[in-house]
Design a protein around this nucleic acid. Structure first.
Lengths: 232, 232
DNA sequence: CAGTGGTCTAGACCACTGT
DNA sequence: CAGTGGTCTAGACCACTGA
């Protein structure tokens, strides 16, 4: 645990007890109080500012954000997403197979055409109701024996705990599409349903593609919320 | 222009001439070369890392990212968005009026119900074809005489150049909806069209809501791409 | 004017990588 | 082991805010 990290935790504790828009002590005092240099403190504060836990005003001071504003950055994991919405995530594996990468999949995963991949199709449920159809591809080389794992849970938990893979960032493309007959059947929607099609590629810290997939969500039950920073 | 900023620019110049995954000089040498301290250089590098222009590997060095990966963070401005796609943005103002904030609008803008706002409805075009219907609300107090401006251009350019307002971050919620008859008429889509409904609130650096709006995009012509960092 | 956050420095030491 | 990026420090000075 670095000192900056520790300062960050202590700051979060302190902020929890404060109201929105309340003023924090000046940096020089906070640093003294937390037993850290001002530079170290400033790094911790900068992280919290990026996460919108606080905001800083030059010449005035550092303030606590509205709780409302700070949340929702991370998405990606269906299980976590549903949990945050107060729903219980469920999974039905529709199909699992080895396959050879081609076309868009090979391009997204940055592997030559014909590379061995795992392909996984799952129906994801929220409180027992169909929410989304998921089609995932991963390079087989990185995940030996993946298809023998229990795939009824969070794929990202498996990648992390069993293969030690950490996702560093995600690129997503969202479209609106009209449901096909097959999709209507699986998702149990009405005749003319609009669906949210999310195509995502997950990368590790070295910018290597780790996993890609397409998720098709019911438009009447799902929305997608996120924040964007416009620094500079 | 700060030294860090200058270093950043010079680094970008240098990176432009390099290939993907090429190794940059070590930090100590780069700092010397750019006439800056290592700390200052590291801050510039950290910015570039966040923007995915470079990536760093401990014990090895700092590398140039694939050009492919770095782009697409900023969205929000329709005009800029279309320009990046190689399309010409156009605008037809459908409606402009003063109004009183109520319900969701008052809540999103964080003003009491009954506060005076400006309301603006525009049809946005790409290469002359309808792309999106936009419905925007802003607190009148912040933007005197707004309705007298030329609203056929980028609203964000007006906010910045005429009112000196800088947007610091954006919160967006995306849904898929089926087009109503009115929307089909305005957007010139077919009978059963899926649309992308984007609700956004723009905040300044002090976390004050500056503007909110709903944009309804044609599902067959538009997609929405963005990146998410999962630091920590 | 005093008080705040923002920038910058030179240097020390730590943690990880690959030979 | 030598070489890399990562953390941390103490202190100086700048730029902005509001009384």
């Amino acid at each position: 645990m670095t000192k900056t990290r520790k300062a960050r935790e202590e700051l979060l504790e302190r902020i929890k007890t404060m109201k929105a828009n309340e003023l924090l002590p000046r940096e020089r005092d906070l640093a003294l109080e937390l037993g850290i240099s001002r530079s170290g403190l400033r790094q911790a504060l900068s992280e919290l500012e990026n996460e919108r836990v606080i905001y800083r005003v030059r010449g005035k001071g550092t303030y606590v954000s509205d709780k409302q504003i700070s949340k929702r950055t991370f998405i990606t994991s269906f299980t976590r997403d549903m949990t945050e919405r107060g729903l219980v995530a469920g999974t039905r594996v529709l199909h699992r197979a080895q396959a050879l990468a081609s076309g868009e999949v090979a391009q997204d995963l940055d592997v030559p055409e014909g590379t061995l991949i795992y392909s996984l199709q799952r129906l994801r449920l929220a409180d027992g109701e169909p929410m989304c159809i998921e089609h995932v591809q991963l390079p087989a080389e990185l995940f030996p024996e993946l298809l023998r794992q229990d795939l009824d849970t969070s794929l990202y938990d498996i990648l992390q705990s069993r293969y030690g893979i950490e996702i560093a960032f995600t690129r997503q493309t969202i479209r609106a599409v009209v449901a096909t007959a097959e999709q209507r059947r699986l998702l149990a929607t009405g005749r003319t349903a609009a669906l949210l099609e999310v195509t995502r590629i997950n990368f590790d810290a070295r910018h290597r593609p780790i996993e890609r997939g397409v998720s098709i969500y019911r438009g009447d039950r799902y929305d997608f919320t996120f924040n964007t920073n416009h620094q500079n």
